[in-house]
Design a protein around this nucleic acid. Sequence first.
DNA 1: TTTAGAATATATCGTATCGATATAATCGGT
DNA 2: ACCGATTATATCGATACGATATATTCTAAA
Lengths: 180, 180
Amino acid sequence: MDSRTLCLGLLAQGAASGYELKKLLEGPLRHFVDASFGSIYPALARLAAEGLVACTEQAQDRRPDKKVYQLTPQGRLALLDALINLPGRDRFRSDFAALMLFADLLPVRHLSELIDEKLAEQEAALAELAALREGGASLPQEFVAGLAAAMIGAARDYLDENRHMIESHALQNVVTPSAT
Amino acid sequence: MDSRTLCLGLLAQGAASGYELKKLLEGPLRHFVDASFGSIYPALARLAAEGLVACTEQAQDRRPDKKVYQLTPQGRLALLDALINLPGRDRFRSDFAALMLFADLLPVRHLSELIDEKLAEQEAALAELAALREGGASLPQEFVAGLAAAMIGAARDYLDENRHMIESHALQNVVTPSAT
DNA sequence: TTTAGAATATATCGTATCGATATAATCGGT
DNA sequence: ACCGATTATATCGATACGATATATTCTAAA
């Protein structure tokens, strides 16, 4: 999903500034969608130029000016259109998994540390997702959070139960052959 | 993981041409890593210029020329270095999940179709991964395939059991309000 | 049999995106 | 008093994706 559609979709749930959109994307949603400032601001500017969002500049008291964007009727139509013509396959990019593929090049100690870190990261993400579901989220958000939790939980369990596989494999080459 | 490191890592398991690397990435590995021709060829060219891989041009009989790349000792060191200084967090980008977030904008019929398609896609991926594990793969590949299977399987089960949640939610707005 | 399409093989180009950085004011803590 | 975090917008370089171009050969259907 391109940043344009993403911005439109988020604005469909309420007006917001670019900064606020970015903050939204740093929450539990980040497991499935994201966009950087470098994508959001140009996207909003272009959407505004095309009349798909309306921009209201709000001079704040003791804060920098805030540009609040809200969806126009044309914007809502464009969003609907984009959502329907959106096949876009899922893409999971994992440096961790890539490292596991190259496990026989790494010292076991390092490998074990990586797995420990990954497990801790997963526990933290699961806790955050559980909190989201307790403290009222919208139903679609809850649904998506549940999906994330299911996948992360499965990955954690798998790692926990099968790490010995890869760790004993890496054990074969104990020390990386020294340079030159 | 950048294309450079990825190419080095793949070449560490054996010499190959750019085209062959791309084919590798279209297999079951694609669930975790990928790179396009537009990344692979420039990466290989730069690695060759830096002396991290050696290129041997092989004029083939009834095929276009093939440029076979293989890791040099310096390349192996560079790879090891890159792998160790590689934290890089995992990033899962899912248009499907994003669409679920915006479920209340979509007609239920469309939503149900999307879920059906996703389930079919997951079944296919699981079958492919199972086949990989039967027909001998290396241990790291088997490990990573298992991780992929665990996550995809969990997502499939969650979708199967919870789709009614999101489907009955979308039901509220039966028809998208007509244009203009 | 012809002919369309898939496969083998390399390469480039426009657009999109990330991550870092710049700027600027104010708030919170030590 | 001062440092760092927070709120807020914006740009820039490096990188990556996806589509496309080129050329040949193999395969399968019309």
